[in-house]
Write a protein that binds this DNA or RNA. Structure first.
Length: 438
RNA sequence: GGAGGGGUUCCCGAGCGGUCAAAGGGGGCAGACUGUAAAUCUGCUGCGUAAGCUUCGGAGGUUCGAAUCCUCCCCCCUCCA
C-alpha cells in the first residue's frame, strides 16, 4: 500500500482532499470511484486526469471503480454550463459503456482474479427502477433544500442578477431536474458505499459540491464515513481550453481522433504546460521527470518534455505501433521530407500517414492531360474555397505539390503520382489535401 | 401599452446620397524568423484571370446614382407604465 495522496500531491493532481482520507487509505485496501459521462462511445482527454487518478489508485494497491453515468447523464450536471441533455436509449448506453470500458482497460486492470481489480458500474442499473416516490422518501428526506441551495453550482444559477461580475452569461434559472442532479449523484455514492464498500469518490474540482452531497448522504443514511478527493481543472498557459483542437475534442478513440493527431496534440504543448502535463499524464516517477525537466531547460528547442509526454501517453492510449506510425507521419509532414521520401512510402503507410486528411478524387484522364493547379486546389476539389483564394495562395508561395512549392502555371501530371494514385497538395505548412486518382 | 436607440462583410465597429467591396481593430490564413512554440515583422482575408457581378435585417420606393433618403414589415436593446 503506497501512499496514494502523496503520489498525487507531487504530481500536482490534488485540488482538495477531505481530512482523514490519507489515513483512511493507508489502513487497508479501499475502493474509490470516478464518474464518466456516457453520452459518446469514447472518452476524451478531458477525462484523462480522473482516469489517471484511478490508475494511480490501483497502482497504490487499491480498487478503482469507474462509474458510467447512464442515469445522471440524462439529467445534466449544472456544475458545467452544460446544455440540455438528450436521453440515451438503452442499447446506445450499453454500447457506449462497453466502448468506454475498452478504453479504460488501457489504464486499469479489470482482471477479476486480482484482489484490487478495477470494476465498471452503471448508475442506470440501480436508478432505472427507483421510483420517484421511493427516491424522495428514502433519499430526499435526508437532505435539506437549504443544504442543496448552498452549493456553488446551484447558487450561481439561482442568484439571478446578484453578481454581474461572476460569469458573463446571464442567469437563466435552473430547472428542477438539474437541481436534483446532486442528489442523484449523491445517491450513487451511497449505493456504492453500501454495495461495493466504496468509501472514496474522486473527480474534478467542479465536482466537490456533488461529491460532498454523497458523503453527507452516507453519513446520514449509511451512518458511515466517506471521503472526497478532487483534482484541479487542467488549464493551458495561453488560456485556451485544454483538450480542444480545431476539430473539437481530442478523443481517445482513434476513429474520432487519429493517433497521429493525438500525438501531435501533446507534442504541441507549450513549455510551461508540458512540465505540468508530464507529471499528470505519464507514470514516470519523480526522479525521471526531474531529470527530463533539467534536460529540457538545457536545450528547450529540442522539446524533450513534449516528445516524451507525447510518446508516453500515445503508447498508453493507443499502442507502441500507433506511436511509431504517428512519429513517422510527423517526420514526413514536418521534417525535411522530399518528394522522393513521399514516393517511397507504400500505399498502406501513405494512407496511415494521411489518415484524416481531406481527400478528393480526380480522374486519371485529367491527370494525364495535365491538371491545372488552380482547378486542383479549388473548383475540382474544394480544398480551397475559391479560385481567387487558390491564386492568392499561389502568389503567396504557399502551395506545394508533394512537398515541392509550385507556381500558378503548374500543371499536375502523371509524374506527380505517388504509388500511381495519390497526389499530396499542401497549403502552407499545416494544411494537407490528398488527391486520389480513380 | 408609451418613449427612445439599434440591426454593416467571420466577430466587434466606423460610414450616413456618388471617390464604398465599404475605415479601424480582432480573428483566420500565408510568408520571414523559429522549436511543428511564443513574440515580432510583412502580405492576404465577398465571387471573378479580367471586364464585371453579388453584399450593409427583409420587401418595396425616390434618384442618373443608396449601406446612406422615404414607406411598410421583422428582430434586438434601454427607459417609463
Amino acid at each position: 500500500m503506497t501512499n496514494y495522496i502523496e503520489e498525487l500531491q507531487w504530481r500536482g493532481m490534488i485540488h482538495d482532499v477531505m481530512p482523514g482520507a490519507q489515513e483512511h487509505l493507508q489502513e487497508s485496501l479501499r475502493s474509490a470511484y470516478v464518474g464518466f459521462d456516457p453520452t459518446a462511445d469514447s472518452l476524451h482527454i478531458g477525462n484523462l486526469v480522473t482516469i489517471m487518478m484511478l490508475a494511480h489508485f490501483q497502482r497504490s494497491g487499491h480498487k478503482p471503480i469507474a462509474l458510467v453515468g447512464g442515469a445522471t447523464g440524462m439529467i445534466g450536471d449544472p456544475s458545467g454550463k452544460s446544455a440540455e441533455r438528450n436521453l440515451l436509449d438503452e442499447p446506445t448506453l450499453r454500447h457506449n459503456q462497453n466502448a468506454i470500458q475498452k478504453q479504460l482497460e488501457h489504464f486499469l486492470d479489470f482482471d477479476a482474479s486480482q484482489k484490487n481489480a478495477a470494476e465498471m458500474v452503471n448508475n442506470y442499473d440501480w436508478m432505472k427502477s427507483f421510483s420517484f416516490l421511493d427516491f424522495i422518501r428514502d433519499v430526499g428526506k435526508h437532505i435539506t433544500v437549504n443544504y442543496m441551495m448552498a452549493k456553488d453550482s446551484v447558487k450561481n444559477r439561482i442568484t439571478a442578477d446578484a453578481g454581474d461580475d461572476t460569469s458573463a452569461g446571464g442567469s437563466e434559472g435552473m430547472s428542477f431536474t438539474e437541481f436534483t442532479y446532486q442528489l442523484v449523484q449523491g445517491y450513487d455514492f451511497l449505493h456504492l458505499y453500501k454495495e461495493n464498500s466504496c468509501t472514496v469518490q474522486m473527480g474534478g474540482s467542479d465536482q466537490w459540491g456533488n461529491i460532498t452531497t454523497g458523503t453527507e448522504l452516507i453519513r446520514r443514511i449509511g451512518n458511515g464515513k466517506a471521503y472526497a478527493i478532487t483534482c484541479p481543472l487542467i488549464t493551458k498557459a495561453d488560456g485556451s481550453k485544454f483538450g480542444k483542437s480545431e476539430g473539437g475534442n481530442v478523443w481517445l478513440d482513434p476513429a474520432r481522433t487519429s493517433a497521429y493527431k493525438f500525438y501531435q496534440y501533446w507534442l504541441n504543448s507549450s513549455d510551461e504546460d508540458s512540465e505540468k502535463y508530464i507529471r499528470i499524464f505519464t507514470f514516470l516517477n519523480q526522479a525521471e521527470i526531474d531529470a527530463l525537466i533539467a534536460e529540457h531547460n538545457e536545450a528547450k528547442h529540442l522539446r524533450v518534455l513534449q516528445k516524451r509526454l507525447a510518446d508516453e501517453i500515445t503508447t498508453i492510449v493507443h499502442s507502441a505501433q500507433a506511436l511509431e506510425k504517428a512519429k513517422q507521419a510527423s517526420s514526413i509532414l514536418f521534417g525535411n521530407a522530399t518528394a522522393e521520401d513521399l514516393k517511397s512510402l507504400d500505399e498502406q503507410t501513405f494512407l496511415d500517414v494521411f489518415d484524416g486528411v481531406p481527400q478528393a478524387e480526380v480522374s486519371i484522364a485529367a491527370i494525364n492531360d495535365g491538371l491545372d493547379i488552380v482547378a486542383a486546389l479549388a473548383t475540382d476539389t474544394g480544398f480551397l474555397k475559391s479560385n481567387g483564394e487558390a491564386r492568392r495562395a499561389l502568389k503567396e508561395n504557399s502551395v506545394a505539390v508533394n512537398k515541392v512549392k509550385v507556381v500558378e502555371e503548374y500543371k499536375i501530371g502523371s509524374t506527380d503520382l505517388i504509388n500511381g494514385k495519390f497526389v499530396l497538395l499542401q497549403r502552407g505548412k499545416k494544411n494537407y489535401f490528398v488527391l486520389k486518382v480513380v
